[in-house]
């Protein structure tokens, strides 16, 4: 268990696709613990993906209850090999990312997703997420495929410099 440094672009690991974990792989639990510790060390951070802390594995943590804006949530989510099965109700929202500390971007995301994943004990989960929690999960799962939020910008008006520190960081 450790608070790890969060990799900042252009670190090459951020653009790589992480391989799936084999079921039962203890690396999964270790990654989740590190992600949880690291997320806790960043106030305002509502999610992290393993590649962001230098671990090329399909593990993410999301906890939108940490957001300054209250929203519907399942508390702390620790997911291994997450996979989006359905995505609907697309909407554009503003996001930040600890791997791009100075930028914000408007990104189109589904407001409702159905997700298949394993929890930290390698139990199968099949859950539906909505709103900001769904958005945060998509942002983190993108990290597992080496897709960064800037890759999803659709117009020149969608990129902003962060003028004051801290809104929700993913």
């Amino acid at each position: 268990m450790a608070v790890l440094p969060v990799l900042v672009y252009p670190h090459p690991l951020l653009k790589q696709k992480a391989p799936s974990l084999s079921p039962g792989d203890p690396q999964g639990l270790r990654a989740l613990e590190d992600l949880e510790d690291t997320m806790s060390a960043h106030p305002g951070c509502v999610g992290l993906a393993a590649p962001q802390v230098g671990c090329l594995a399909r593990a993410v943590v999301v906890d939108v209850s940490r957001s300054v804006r209250p929203c519907e949530n399942h508390g702390r989510l620790k997911l291994l090999n997450p996979d989006v099965l359905e995505a609907t109700q697309w909407k554009i929202g503003r996001e930040g990312c600890l791997s791009f500390p100075d930028l914000l971007a408007n990104v189109k995301r589904a407001q409702r997703i159905r997700l298949k994943a394993f929890n930290e004990w390698w139990e199968k989960m099949d859950l539906v997420f909505t709103g900001f929690e769904a958005v945060a999960l998509q942002h983190e799962i993108d990290h597992l495929d080496g897709i960064l939020f800037l890759d999803r910008i659709r117009s020149s008006k969608d990129l902003f410099e962060r003028r004051k520190p801290q809104s929700a960081a993913l």
Partner: peptide
């Protein structure tokens, strides 16, 4: 028809980002 660029100070090196329509 539209071009915006930003240079932001990264941890290791300045990051250049550009969106062009």
């Amino acid at each position: 028809t539209d071009l915006r660029t930003h240079v932001t100070t990264g941890a290791q090196a300045p990051l250049y980002s550009l969106v062009m329509e």
